[in-house]
Simulated scan of single mutants.
Amino acid sequence: MNYTIHQLQIFLKVVQTKSITKASEELFMTQPAVSIQLKNLQDQFEIPLTEVVSRQLYVTDFGKEIAIIAERVIQELENINYKTQAYQGILTGKLSISAVSTGKYVIPYFLSEFLEKSVGIDLVLDVTNKSRVVESLKNNEIDFALVSVLPEKLSIEEELLIENKLYLVGNHAIRDENKPLIYREEGSATRLAMEKYFEVHQGKKRKRMELTSNEAVKQAVIAGLGYSIMPLIGIQNELLNGQLFILEEEDLPIKTEWRLIWLKSKKLSPVSLAYLNFIRSEKQKILTEKFNWYLKY
């Protein structure tokens, strides 16, 4: 046997994505390079690790067993690095955070200085939909979640970060009533806030358009396809460039809070505690330096 750590890492990514194409994208490698490394690993086993059926890649039972072992091997190698750094007096470990999609405009600013000062910490940041964020938190797969609406039936602790403000926006300063409202997908916190608002103020209107990401909604509004209620945090450049306009409406903006949450029963690691202490001590400074434009609205 003469397989490499690199081959095991590539194989694990293929197992996770069930696709050479997706694995290559996430690894920033070409598809042929991934395929070659996967073949080099496979050549060392007489039993197939993967198989292709109707152009779909499947991991065999043997491959799944090898993936479990490979994951342990790679984790132990990471532990060696962490342990080495710990002996050098460096705070080490992994910090895992899952954020709802619009949270990508918030969380980086609450991480950058912490990571600059903590070179021994590896960050795993998953920006995804609300359902996946809550599921990751519920299954104890992450240290923290960033949300604007608290999940139901979960006992959690929280640290407030910044107010979340949602405005009605369009690509002109005057609203054309003939154009439709553009909604996020079911389960989105922004979608829920938008539905509640229009149910109270204009009755239940048939939605005309539904898009699955905040960025897609933003581009649709810029293109003039309709109007939407959107988080202010994600449209700074478009407001400055005159691509989007805030439309004055009764009882807007809708306000919630961006908050970092974690399971109440979770025993926080030294890395998690260090990050929480950083947030509590530096939050006001971050708000003043990074979100001054936002706080003025």
Rank of each mutant, 00 (worst) to 15 (best):
T50W: 04
L49Y: 05
Q31H: 12
F28I: 03
F45T: 11
Q56H: 14
P32N: 05
R55N: 10
A23P: 08
K22A: 14
L41D: 13
F28L: 02
F45L: 07
Q31M: 13
E26C: 06
D43C: 10
T21N: 09
P32S: 07
V34I: 12
T60K: 06
E25L: 06
A33C: 03
M29N: 01
K22N: 13
T60Y: 11
L41I: 14
Q56A: 09
E51N: 04
S35E: 06
N40A: 14
Q37F: 11
Q37P: 07
I20W: 02
T30I: 00
I47Q: 12
S24W: 00
S54I: 01
V34D: 01
V53L: 04
S54C: 01
V52K: 14
E51L: 04
D43V: 10
T21P: 00
T50Y: 10
L57K: 14
F45P: 09
I47G: 01
N40P: 06
F28D: 02
D43T: 13
V53E: 05
L49T: 03
F45C: 08
F45W: 13
T50L: 07
E46F: 09
T60A: 05
S24F: 00
M29W: 00
T30N: 01
I36L: 15
S54W: 01
Y58Q: 09
I47M: 07
F45G: 06
I36A: 07
T50Q: 04
N40R: 15
N40T: 14
A33H: 09
E46I: 12
T21G: 01
A23G: 12
Q44H: 11
S35Q: 12
Q42V: 13
R55M: 05
T60L: 08
Q56R: 15
Y58A: 11
D43M: 12
T21E: 10
V53T: 09
D43Y: 14
P48H: 03
L27C: 06
E46L: 10
Q31T: 15
P32W: 08
Q56K: 15
I20T: 07
E51Y: 07
T50H: 04
L41A: 11
F28V: 00
I36D: 11
V34F: 03
V53N: 02
S24E: 00
T60P: 06
V59M: 13
L38S: 02
E51A: 05
K22E: 15
I47Y: 10
E25Q: 12
Y58L: 14
L57V: 13
E46D: 15
E26R: 08
M29P: 01
K39D: 05
V59Q: 09
T50M: 10
T50G: 02
L57G: 06
R55D: 04
S24T: 02
Q42N: 14
L49N: 02
T50P: 02
T60H: 09
L27K: 07
Q37I: 09
I47C: 02
A23Y: 03
E26H: 06
L57E: 08
V52Y: 04
S24P: 02
Q37T: 12
V59E: 06
E51C: 03
